[in-house]
Structure formats: C-alpha cells, structure tokens
Design a protein around this nucleic acid. Sequence first.
DNA 1: ATGAAAGCGCTAACAT
DNA 2: ATGTTAGCGCTTTCAT
Lengths: 348, 348
Amino acid sequence: MTTSPDAPRRPLTLKDVSEASGVSEMTVSRVLRNRGDVSEATRDRVIAAAKELGYVPNKIAGALASQRVNLVAVIIPSLSNLVFPEVMTGISQVLDDTPLQPVVGVTQYKPEKEEDVLYEMLSWRPSGVIIAGLEHTEPARAMLAAAGVPVVEIMDTDGEPVDAMVGISHRRAGREMAKAIVAQGYRRIGFLGTGMPLDHRARKRFEGFTEALAKAGVEIADREFYSGGSALAKGREMTEAMLNRTPDLDFLYYSNDMIGAGGLLYCLEKGIDVPGKLGLAGFNRVELLDGLPRRLATMDACRLEIGRAAARIIADRSSDPEIPGGQRDILTPTIDPGDTLYRSRPRV
Amino acid sequence: MTTSPDAPRRPLTLKDVSEASGVSEMTVSRVLRNRGDVSEATRDRVIAAAKELGYVPNKIAGALASQRVNLVAVIIPSLSNLVFPEVMTGISQVLDDTPLQPVVGVTQYKPEKEEDVLYEMLSWRPSGVIIAGLEHTEPARAMLAAAGVPVVEIMDTDGEPVDAMVGISHRRAGREMAKAIVAQGYRRIGFLGTGMPLDHRARKRFEGFTEALAKAGVEIADREFYSGGSALAKGREMTEAMLNRTPDLDFLYYSNDMIGAGGLLYCLEKGIDVPGKLGLAGFNRVELLDGLPRRLATMDACRLEIGRAAARIIADRSSDPEIPGGQRDILTPTIDPGDTLYRSRPRV
DNA sequence: ATGAAAGCGCTAACAT
DNA sequence: ATGTTAGCGCTTTCAT
C-alpha cells in the first residue's frame, strides 16, 4: 500500500475502489466478501486496488444493509477477577473458528451498570449475548427476552434463565464442600468471604454450605467478610483475626482461592499444623497459585468449559436459526483436596 | 414496559415509536437524543411510548447517518496478564465521564493477529485507537496512520509512535533496576524471564538491564526463560534450577512479579537468607501479591496512569478536533525496594 | 417546536 | 460473470 502525497481525510468508500479498479461497486463488494462468482482477473484487479488505496470496509454500512452483525456481546462483572479472563479465553477459542467476534462489557457487579451496558450493546444489534449470572434488573431481563437473538446466561445455574444457561450450581458446590469437610471430622468451621452482597454466586455457595452443615448438625462457628484491597493480604489478616477470636476452629472455608492462599501462607508461617489441626479450603481453582508451598483444597468452577459451551450455543444457533433455544448445560465441579483437606493421606 | 402478547421478531424502529406516540420520527429521534427543542408534553409522550414498547435504538443506523461512533478501540496482547485489566480500569475511569466507550481486542502477542484485530476494529470506524506497544506490522502502522482518528500507543516509549504515545521507558526501567542492584554490592546476577520473543517490553527491560550492568563491569552470570504454566510454579522451578546450576549467584532479577514471587517463596522455604545472601527483584508491582511473607522488590509500571492518560488524549481530541496530535507522555516508574533489595536496613 | 426530504455506505434482489 | 435498483434505520438539513 502506497501513501498518496496528501492522505484524504475522508475515509475511502467502495466507490473509490470501484473507480480505481474500473469495476462496479457491486462487484467490488462481492470480491471483498468472497461472495458470488467473480472472475479471477477482476478479483485480482479489485484486490490490488483495495490494497493500493488502503481501503478498510465500513462495517456500519454493511451491517445496516445486510441486517447482520458478527458481534457477540459478552457481559461480565469484572476483568480483574481472574475468573472472567478465563471464561473469555474459552469464548474466544470457540468463536475464533467462526465469523463471530466477542465484545466485552464490564458491569462492576452493579445491576444498573449492567442494565446500561446491556442497552448499549443491544443497540449495536449483536448476533448473541453471553451474560454472567441469572440475576438482572427487570428491564434488563425484558431487554434480553426481547433481543431476538440467542442469550446465554453463564456461571450460575441456580435459577431460571431467560433463554439458555451454562454453568455450575453454586449452591451445590457449597453443599459438596461442606459434606467433604464434615466427612473429614471437622466440626468447628469458620467462613471467610467477600462482603459483596451483589455477588450472587458467592452468596449461593455460602447458603449451600450452611445448609449442608445444618443437615450434619453443624453450625458455622465464626465468619468474616472483607472488601477491597489485595486478596492475599486480606486473607492473611482475616485469618489472623478469626483465629485470635475463635482459637478452637478446626476448619476455614474461604469464598475464593486468593484469600484462601493468604490464609494458608499465614498458617504455614505460624507453624500451624495444616490440615492436622486446621483444615483449609477455597473456591475456584486458580492456576496462578500452583507454586504455593502447599496446595489449597479447592473446587474447579469449569470456567474455560463454561465459556466454550456458551460460545458453542451462540455459534450454532446463529448459523442455524432453526435450532431452538433454552439450552441448559449444568457442569459438575469437582473437589480438589489439594494438601489441606484430607487429614489422613493414603499410605504409600 | 409491558410485554405484548406475542413479541415481534422484528426489532422495533423509530417508526414504531413514532406511530405509537403520534409524533414524527424526527421528533422522536430528537427526544431520544436530547437534541433540539422539544416541548415537555411531546417529550413525555415519546419517552412513555418508547419505554412501553421496549424500544432500543439502532446505533448502526445512527452511526451511519451521523458519521459518528462513540467507540474507542483498545488493542492489547492479553487479558490474563493482570497488567492489562489495570490499564483498562484507567481507561474506563476516564471514558466513563464521556460519551465514549472502550471496546477491547486481544492479540495474544501475535503481530498478524494484531493486524486482523485492528482491521476489524477500524472497520467499525471508532473515534480513537489505544494500542499496546510501538511495534506493529507494516500494514498495521499504515492502517493506524490512515485511520483519521486519534491513535495512542501505550505502555512503551522506546520508539517512534504513529501519533501519540503514553508509557514508560522499559529500557530505562531495566537500567535503573540494574543500577540499584549494583549499588547494593550484588555482583553475581541471574536473570529469569519469559521466553516470549514478541514481548518487546520485556526484551527492552532486559537490554537496558544488561547495558547498565555492563557499564558497571558486571555481566549476567546466568539466565533462564520459561513459557506457559503457572507463573508462581515456574518461578519456583526456575529458581531452583538456576541456584543448583550456579550456586554462587547473589541476585535474581525476574521479568515479572509473579515468577519473582515463586522464587521468593522457594528461597524462604529453603531458608536462604534474603536479601543478605541473595537479593531478589521483579517488575510490575502486583497488588495481588501484597500478602506474601516478604515484599518482593519491584517497579511500578504506572498502568492505571497510562490508561487514564491515553483515554484523556482520545477524549480531548475527539471532542475538539482542533487539538493537534503527537502527544508524548513519558511516565517515570519508581523502584519499590520491598524487603528483598536493600541488604542493610535503616536501624530503628 | 415540529416536519419532510435526502442520503450515510453498503448489500439483497433482481436484471442482464 | 457483472451491473442496476432499492432500501437498511437513522440523522442532517432545510422548511414551516
């Protein structure tokens, strides 16, 4: 591509390419989209002209004319959570083999912000929507229902989706972990979590957790919540505070691996016998933490798989509108006991 | 908003709102955009009708007609890097006070992918482009130059930008750290980094580092590179391998805080005297790590500030096209010695 | 304060 | 294999 003496401020149009190549706009359009029959010769001339001029098609006009937009709206609470980049990776893996492209919107766990972001994204008429969680404002649900494109609600399956859903049951995840903990004989259990009332998944895990404990006749012995700051540091501080307040605890359940790791480091430093005297578990297997001195017990939330499955649904339904909606893909998270849950290990 | 008995598959248009409210399309458009004079009465009727129908404007048509798109293309190598979400936060902070909206594209550190993503995004005619790094393919540079909108290249300032640039000099960052290390009397220095030949910023830091060491008559005594896997675990493994191979090293410089933290944990576990016998330093202050038993020496790369400054430039220039381009904002990263760089601490 | 007409840059549908 | 025509849904501009 050569730069002409003075670059035009006006963006180039099909017409420019048409004139430069001596071919009709329509044919240029066909070449640029690999559509319909075009002779080798004209194709070459058009491509040469487009390249020479540095033409970049105007998708806005294209989308308006064709009523098709190859964008998939992905709406998530945060990018710094580690969890969501992984979901994005799964989505991208699948969409990379299609003409579709993800576009991310971040809500910061705020329902009104979610509503705004959704409205904004729907106004671009995307081919599909992937949105985290099942809890939305009334207007947001209405918009999703009226969008006229596939909608996949991800991460959580404890509730009724507008259309399709892919995720895990966080209530069940909490229950399973509670059962595993009780099965190991722990009885004096503390809970440490985020203070975010709007993190519904964390809330549901907690509910499932206490529910299963209750069934075993156990009650949470102490609890503490945090917000803001470095999760690792917070985990450390909270653990110290809780153990000072309630020294007879024999298990700490953390609502995520980062604060759990902070707690683990604290315990190791203090020479506390883990998991002999004190068991620990987190949630959301964070690969990043694999280099810790000891592996924290945790549960994999299947993030990559959730992203892939959601994208699959959008891709399939958007290429074949005959496919009905309402898919339910409930994945099963499994406990990874790491080194901090099982008191007795199998003898070698 | 009420849901009509059978929801229409066809998306609603201005015309629908116009008919429902008995007002011309033009006036509806004015109301919905808060433009021009509209009487209180008609405004209310229009808003009521739009809400009742659940009308979502079509930005594609709007953008085509007005030749204005309130999107800012943000092109970054990765979302899992921790660094980039922080840059995004800075960008959002500033754009939230404007009509502009960021749209993210991810390149996975691949030049061709970057070219594709850029082409794709430019075809939506964004109001500005924020792109990581100064190294791009020839076509990518040409596209940026011809885009006709503000372009800000961020993170790195060692090179010539197409238009504006905001970032730090990674070469200088490497030099500064080398000087600080030598000043502490360390002489047998090992380097541990990513094996990514396309991470130009890591490469420049390394070059600056070796250059400043050379000036002090010191040469890198050992080096090791990794790719893939958990950074913490890799840092641990690499550190072990290097110390076994070259036991007389007295300093380890890591190309990022995550692998540095892995190394730090390893050293503490082995009872190595840090920083007495072995000093450590990373790069890119990661808040997430604040809860480690000891604070790793590092350097803040000013990510939040870079995002904010870049967004500022786009916002300003896009609201006032008279403002000329070519801004250069070179921020100064500072060394945070943490607990692993200074051998002698000030006595209390 | 409101409306009518023209057209943004492209593509669907129909010629040829 | 290529060209022509008529919009896509909105906003700009110019009337009233």
